[in-house]
Design a protein around this nucleic acid. Structure first.
Length: 798
DNA sequence: TTATTGCATGGCT
DNA sequence: AAGCCATGCAATA
């Protein structure tokens, strides 16, 4: 294959195409070139057509290798790149001024070829689907040289596998967000183009002992020692990308890579075209033409304004529009989806030492499409004609964002097309957009989420566009300059919000909670690539601690959800989020909660990050039939309320064994002096709500266990239950019998109602007091934080 | 005066 | 920190 690749990329072949545009400065570009210029049909494409399969495979290999190589390339990585490696990473190699390097379409193609021609198989993309081919309409096309087998997810045996980790989630169709970030189930032994790299298996199943923030890199060559790579590094490759651009999955909804490879590698993600098959079909009509989406741009206020100038992203212009050397540029014909042809002046302004590209005369087009700021226009290329075709997508109104339950509908075509509603589609049509869906309708910006605010801006901006000729302002008079910038605001808000939703837990934190699905993976070997194929997405698992004992044996410790006893498990044990002693199939002697713990808490405290003091307390709790409400999901919930920027610290606080620095629970956030702001009983802040929620959970579990015990054992001293188990101590006010768990139905809602009722109906009694002093609380209650968070006001007054 | 044009500025990535 | 790009604005028509 390597040989084939080399042949394929033989310079003589590569440079023989007459249309090759030699590297040159922009200033040297001749506008006369434009006369014969056609949008880059891609010199690569023609070769690709002959070698698409090879190309595709090579690209996948290169992609996988590059990911690894990238890790190793970085100083933070624990491995260094083998000698001789000279990777060029698209993101690393910050795209310098395009003037100084091949900027023409052919030139860019050359860049890519160059990267392949060096024998390293390096492409700038990180995505296997980077090997995209121009979109081709559905249907038989005997003349087509496009083998559909290269279509990722369609018949590509590699990418059609569910659960295979793939950049951008392009091959992950589970809809489970985290899976596409999860690098742990990817195997790569593709070394044909990079022999020095060898093959590696990336895994964190099980996590690296003691290094939960690392991934294991296992060379497929058993003679090479495994090593680890910081997750934070991997995260950059697998996580951030997917988070920031989850929408890109939409590009592959039907398993087709459609955008031009250059777009992915050279353009900022916000310019990546998002276009569906249907839209493309509309654009291409009934011909056998091949459409390659090139880029898209969300219209700014300026773009959509009456000035009629559409600022083009520099790289897009230089990559896909004819090269121009004079500021005046040249007229450019662009066809819209209805077949109407528009002529814009494609030109540039000198700007600093660079250029600013604009399309002039777009007003009629914009108006005919009823576009406003915030809407998106896309540019595609139709081959073999080489025509530029323009699509558009209306942004969502606020109302539509809130009504996102309905599946979004693509639109990138003429408004007269039957299945295109110019008001329907959103910039964010990814399945992940639901993650940012506001859960309440709030028409005021005040207290609304960023997304809501963004939506509001869209709406207002859109209206403002129509308000008066020539004005794009959303408010009269001088406003802060960028305040009228609709487009970027939208993008920023959207991304920020996604991040805020996604990154409330860090990658490392999420990793700790992730377990592979219970169903064992099957190993699939495709063309020498070994993949572990998971049918299901990763699951949130119970947190365990990996330890190496004195004998050097590795194992892990997990805590039973019911009895809180710690159980020793094999190193490869994978626990679900709900795990109890009865699930301890590895140790039949300790398969029940009545079995004693194998090691004392003091011993355990030396092995796993629990404090000895806490260990004692935990032991006490166990003895007194206390409960531990922490599991993976609880942890996740805890993390979720931490807010941005908080990572899960590894060390417990001195106050609460189960709390970590940064914990924002009611106990931890209280200033030591107790002088902090008081929470009212009606407070609905995160902390208060969380406390209530936890309390409900607590009550539920207690109730459950109480009833279980009742059924198991003869009834015993119920009244005495107040000693250690009753929520009256120290949970609730003891003055109301209605607050005891015994009075609460097993139904969770009832439990919560009971709590809330007691809180609401009797402000002075039975209330959950959030205004407590942690130290005192800690002294007085060995219970869990959730328990300890609820106190009597009279105690607080002391 | 108004619209257009070309450039400059500065926020943001 | 460089460079992109949204848009302000002066010059011009």
């Amino acid at each position: 294959m390597l040989q084939e690749l080399c042949n394929f990329l033989a310079p003589s072949q590569m440079w023989s195409t007459p249309t090759v545009h030699m590297p040159q400065n922009v200033a040297d570009r001749k506008d006369s070139y434009v006369k014969s210029w056609r949008p880059p049909t891609g010199q690569i494409s023609s070769q690709w057509r002959q070698n698409h399969q090879l190309w595709n495979m090579s690209t996948i290999q290169a992609d996988l290798q590059q990911r690894l190589a990238y890790e190793f390339d970085r100083p933070s990585g624990s491995e260094k790149l083998p000698p001789g490696r000279t990777f060029i990473h698209a993101q690393e190699k910050k795209s310098d001024d395009m003037h100084d390097r091949p900027t023409t379409p052919a030139g860019m193609g050359q860049i890519i070829r160059d990267r392949y021609a060096n024998g390293l198989g390096q492409q700038t993309s990180m995505d296997p689907t980077h090997s995209s081919t121009p979109y081709q309409r559905e249907g038989p096309n005997p003349n087509s040289l496009h083998d559909p087998s290269h279509h990722v997810g369609e018949s590509d045996p590699l990418s059609s596998r569910k659960g295979i980790i793939s950049d951008g989630g392009s091959t992950v169709s589970t809809g489970f967000k985290l899976d596409s970030h999860h690098p742990s189930i990817l195997k790569d032994d593709a070394a044909s183009t990079l022999p020095t790299m060898g093959g590696y298996t990336i895994t964190n199943y099980p996590p690296v002992p003691g290094r939960s923030d690392h991934l294991r890199i296992i060379p497929n060559n058993p003679q090479q020692p495994p090593t680890t790579v910081p997750l934070s590094v991997v995260q950059k490759q697998f996580y951030s990308h997917s988070v920031i651009e989850p929408n890109y999955q939409a590009q592959f909804r039907n398993g087709k890579p459609r955008m031009d490879p250059k777009a992915r590698s050279e353009l900022l993600p916000r310019y990546w075209p998002r276009i569906t098959d249907k839209e493309l079909q509309h654009l291409s009509g009934d011909s056998n033409s091949v459409i390659t989406p090139l880029f898209e741009k969300m219209l700014s206020a300026s773009d959509a304004g009456r000035i009629g100038r559409l600022v083009l992203p520099k790289k897009c212009a230089e990559a896909y529009f004819p090269p121009i050397s004079q500021p005046e540029g040249l007229p450019l014909k662009v066809q819209d989806a209805s077949g109407k042809e528009w002529v814009f002046q494609f030109r540039f302004w000198p700007n600093n030492n660079s250029r600013m590209y604009v399309l002039e005369g777009v007003t009629p087009c914009i108006q005919s499409m009823h576009l406003q700021a915030g809407d998106t226009v896309s540019f595609s290329r139709i081959d073999p004609e080489g025509k530029l075709v323009m699509g558009f997508r209306k942004t969502k109104t606020q109302e539509q964002i809130f009504r996102q339950e309905e599946p979004t509908k693509p639109a990138n075509a003429a408004p007269n097309l039957p299945d295109v509603n110019i008001n329907v589609t959103a910039p964010d049509s990814s399945p992940n957009s639901s993650l940012v869906r506001p859960n309440k309708v709030n028409t005021e910006n005040k207290d609304s989420s960023p997304v809501e605010q963004a939506a509001s801006k869209i709406d207002k901006g859109g209206v403002a566009q129509k308000e008066g000729p020539g004005t794009v302002r959303t408010s009269p008079g001088p406003v802060k300059r960028k305040a009228t910038s609709i487009g970027p605001k939208i993008k920023r808000f959207r991304i920020d919000n996604e991040e805020s939703m996604e990154l409330k837990i860090t990658w490392e934190e999420a990793q700790e909670l992730l377990r592979p699905p219970l169903k064992a993976p099957s190993v699939v070997i495709v063309d020498g690539h070994e993949f572990e194929e998971y049918e299901e997405p990763p699951v949130l698992g119970r947190k365990t601690y990996f330890v190496t004992d004195q004998s050097g044996e590795n194992h892990q410790w997990a805590q039973c959800e019911d009895c809180s006893k710690w159980r020793k498990l094999p190193i490869d044990a994978l626990l679900p989020s709900k795990w109890t002693c009865s699930d301890n199939k590895w140790d039949p002697e300790r398969m029940t909660c009545v079995s004693p713990q194998e090691a004392s808490m003091e011993e355990l405290a030396e092995l796993i990050p629990i404090k000895a003091g806490a260990a004692k307390k935990a032991k006490l709790r166990m003895d007194t039939d206390s409960i531990d409400v922490s599991d993976g999901l609880d942890t996740l919930a805890n993390l979720a309320i931490l807010g941005e920027g908080e990572s899960l610290p590894s060390q417990p606080t001195t106050k609460h064994p189960r709390h970590r620095p940064g914990c924002s629970c009611i106990v931890c956030i209280q200033p030591p002096s107790g002088k902090g702001p008081k929470h009212k009983q009606t407070c609905t802040c995160n902390v208060c709500m969380t406390v209530r929620r936890r309390f409900r959970t607590l009550m539920l579990r207690r109730e459950k266990r109480a009833s279980e015990k009742e059924s198991e054992e003869p009834p015993r001293k119920k009244e005495q239950g107040q000693s250690s188990e009753s929520p009256q101590d120290p949970l609730l006010a003891s003055t109301s019998p209605t607050s005891t768990p015994q009075k609460v139905n097993g139904n969770g809602d009832d439990a919560e109602e009971a709590v809330e009722h007691s809180m609401a109906s009797s402000p002075m009694k039975n209330q959950i007091d959030l205004n407590i002093q942690p130290e005192r609380e800690d002294e007085q209650s060995p219970k869990s934080d959730a328990v300890g968070a609820m106190r009597l006001p009279r105690e607080n007054a002391a």
